[in-house]
């Protein structure tokens, strides 16, 4: 279980509060107006923003002592998920060994992961030769191999067209099933939440609200969500 315990996050003069648990393996959408602090919440879990107050616990352990790389977390950023000077295989291999000391077995795993995300034969390409959708797939292949119990997605598909984005969301669902990971996905598109997430967190007015089943939330939107949706 991931638990935000009376957490206060601060970036500049902006603060965000969160105080709720979410079960392992859940699929969570984080929605809200831009600038409301959706990414801030993810950055705190990933270890890039220490809470001003409160604790973030995973399975009862305070994450504060762990540097980003040692957390049970894989994060997909909005962009810059791949190093342009490394091949696709090397970029994925970093998920297995940060020093890139890869065994034959590792290379087999990389090939299988590439198959899984639908990019066989791409191992030796560089990111510059890939499309946006393909780059997102490579990042997902790495997440698959790292198999950390928390997968954070900070709008990594926002630059993709609608059909491609839906494909990627289905792929994320698949990866989450394979690894059993808890997924938290930031999106500004309510459709993403409805397609992908069983629960949704609404972030507005400095508060990340307790997760609510997605269908209930949209069937019966609270005032903040109504303002956001414009209905």
């Amino acid at each position: 279980m991931l638990r935000f315990e009376d957490v206060v996050l601060q970036q500049g003069d902006f603060t965000l509060r969160a105080d709720w648990p979410v079960a392992s393996g859940a699929k969570l959408a984080v929605i809200g107006p831009s600038g409301s602090g959706k990414s801030t919440l993810l950055l705190a879990v990933a270890g890039f923003l220490p809470p001003m107050q409160g604790r973030i616990l995973w399975q009862g352990q305070d994450l504060a002592v762990l540097p980003p790389g040692a957390r049970p977390v894989t994060m997909l950023f909005q962009d810059q998920n791949l190093f342009p000077h490394l091949t696709v295989a090397q970029n994925i291999g970093l998920g297995l060994s940060p020093r890139l000391r890869l065994t034959t077995q590792d290379h087999d795993s990389i090939a299988r992961a590439l198959d899984r995300v639908g990019l066989p034969e791409m191992a030796q390409r560089r990111p510059g030769a890939l499309s946006g959708g393909q780059m997102a797939r490579v990042a997902l292949a790495r997440a698959l191999l790292r198999a950390r119990p928390i997968l954070l997605l900070d709008e990594p598909f926002s630059a993709l067209g609608p059909a491609l984005k839906d494909e990627m969301l289905d792929l994320v669902t698949g990866v989450a099933q394979d690894t059993g990971a808890l997924v938290m996905m930031v999106s500004h598109d309510p459709g993403d939440a409805q397609r992908f997430a069983d629960q949704t967190v609404l972030v507005a007015d400095g508060i990340a609200c307790t997760p609510t089943p997605t269908s209930d939330l949209f069937a019966n939107p609270p005032p903040a969500l109504r303002t956001y949706l414009g209905s």
Binding site: A46, G69, Q80, H85, L94, G95, R99
Partner: peptide, 25 residues
């Protein structure tokens, strides 16, 4: 700014980070 967070998230440190990220860039 571009790759600091990614490198940290992947736990690239010390000489490995120097060899794989810093020197090439």
């Amino acid at each position: 700014a571009d790759y600091g967070r990614l490198a940290e998230a992947l736990d690239m440190r010390g000489l490995a980070r120097l060899r794989l990220l810093t020197l090439p860039h």
